[in-house]
Simulated assay, not measured.
Amino acid sequence: MKKILIIDDEWNMRNLIRIYLHGDYQIMEAEDGLKALALISAGHFDLIILDIMLPTLDGWEICKEIRKEKDIPILMLTARNELRDKIYGLDIGADDYLEKPFEPEELVARIKALLRRSVINKNHTENVLMFGDHLMIIKPKSRTVLVKGKKIDFTPKEYDLLHLLATQPQLVFTRELLLDAIWGIKDVRDTRTVDSHVKNIRTKIKEKTPTYNPIETIWGVGYKFNAAADGEL
């Protein structure tokens, strides 16, 4: 049985979610950020439902802390209906976003979708990808990227974006296509989400090797993978 952690300071909200998930999932709860991080550190969870407005630590900070160590699917909840909040949440590592009030059936559907996607990622069996005479190595099974033999810590979405481009180096991806493939959330259509992730990937790789740019900008279209050993940033 999959194990889900609900992080919300409102008992009524936790109770509502628990009622709809009871019997299908093992549920644990935390009403504040410090307790949530302690539970996450001590045990294994298959998915986290995370409210943004919390005492001690807010949802943003909890999401960042989780992403430093773990690749657990995170579904963020909020009463704030602002696009910039959604984009920020996705940028720091959230996998999906649901506004309060929501229909419980939609919550259950999104949970199932996130768990299916997680299983697919864990069972990924593609071969190791190597570029530029071993300058960059991507290991899909462990979701590890090495540049000049040094591991780079990408967020889950940064890794997914880089890996997708690297597996199709002959293709040019539009920003809209990358949004659909990586984020899969139809109501987040701001292409700056893609641009900010590409910038972060380039910056982290530049720290290891200043001359290698793995993602080429195709002006007016989108991005493609640069398999060469070097390239102008």
Rank of each mutant, 00 (worst) to 15 (best):
I6M: 11
I6E: 04
I6A: 11
I6H: 05
E10V: 15
W11E: 15
N12E: 15
R14K: 07
I17K: 03
I19G: 00
I19V: 12
I19L: 06
D24T: 08
Q26K: 04
E29M: 10
D32W: 00
D32G: 00
G33M: 03
G33C: 03
L34G: 01
L39Q: 11
I40G: 05
S41Y: 07
S41E: 11
H44Y: 14
L47N: 09
I49T: 05
D51E: 11
D51I: 02
T56I: 10
T56Q: 13
L57M: 12
E61R: 02
I66D: 02
R67T: 13
K68T: 06
I72W: 14
I74F: 04
L75D: 02
M76G: 10
N81P: 01
D85R: 03
D85P: 12
D85A: 03
D85S: 14
K86T: 07
Y88R: 14
I92Y: 10
G93N: 11
D95C: 10
D95E: 13
D96R: 14
K100C: 07
F102D: 06
E103G: 00
P104E: 05
E105Q: 10
V108M: 09
A113F: 09
V119C: 12
I120T: 13
N121A: 15
K122C: 04
H124I: 14
T125A: 14
L129Q: 08
G132W: 04
H134G: 09
K139S: 09
K141F: 05
T144C: 01
T144S: 01
K148Q: 14
K151H: 05
I152R: 01
D153N: 15
P156Y: 10
D160G: 09
A166K: 02
L171N: 13
R175L: 02
R175H: 02
E176Y: 09
E176W: 03
D180V: 07
D180G: 06
D180M: 00
A181K: 15
K186H: 11
D187A: 01
D187G: 01
D187W: 05
D187Q: 04
D190A: 11
D190H: 07
R192T: 13
T209W: 13
T209D: 15
T211S: 10
I218K: 11
G220I: 01
V221K: 14
G222W: 02
K224D: 05
N226S: 09
N226I: 07
A227F: 00
A227T: 09
D230I: 02
L233G: 10
